[in-house]
Amino acid sequence: MATMMTTWKARVYVTLKPGVLDPQGRAVENALKVLGFAEVGDVRVGKYIEVGLEAPDREAALARVAEMGRRLFANPVIEQFRYDVTEAGAGAAGAGVAGATGATGATGGATGDS
């Protein structure tokens, strides 16, 4: 009777809207410049949230995560959010995060979900 549920993993990125002053981002940008990274600009600091959830399919999972974002993760007055969803396990999630964490290499094991 029940729909077959699949476990998904959502990754949600919350950032300040463009035009909203980001004091943290500005401080980080200044620190980068002090370190000699003169080429940097427009540094913004945000939040990253991982959520495991059960849903019958990818569309359903995306819809639920969008609702979570609207209702809790972001304050629409000053923040925006984006998100993606991957099937948990079966290596799919690992492939999904490879691009994002590849550059950190050594810490990849700590951030993986295997």
């Binding site: 909203v20 002053l21 004091p23 943290q24 401080a27 304050n75 007055v77």
Partner: peptide, 17 residues
């Protein structure tokens, strides 16, 4: 009150952190 929508706007990190 702001988060609850009972007042408009939001409070950000202090300028200067």
């Amino acid at each position: 009150l702001l988060e609850a929508g009972l007042l408009p706007g939001a409070l950000r990190r202090n300028e200067g952190l």
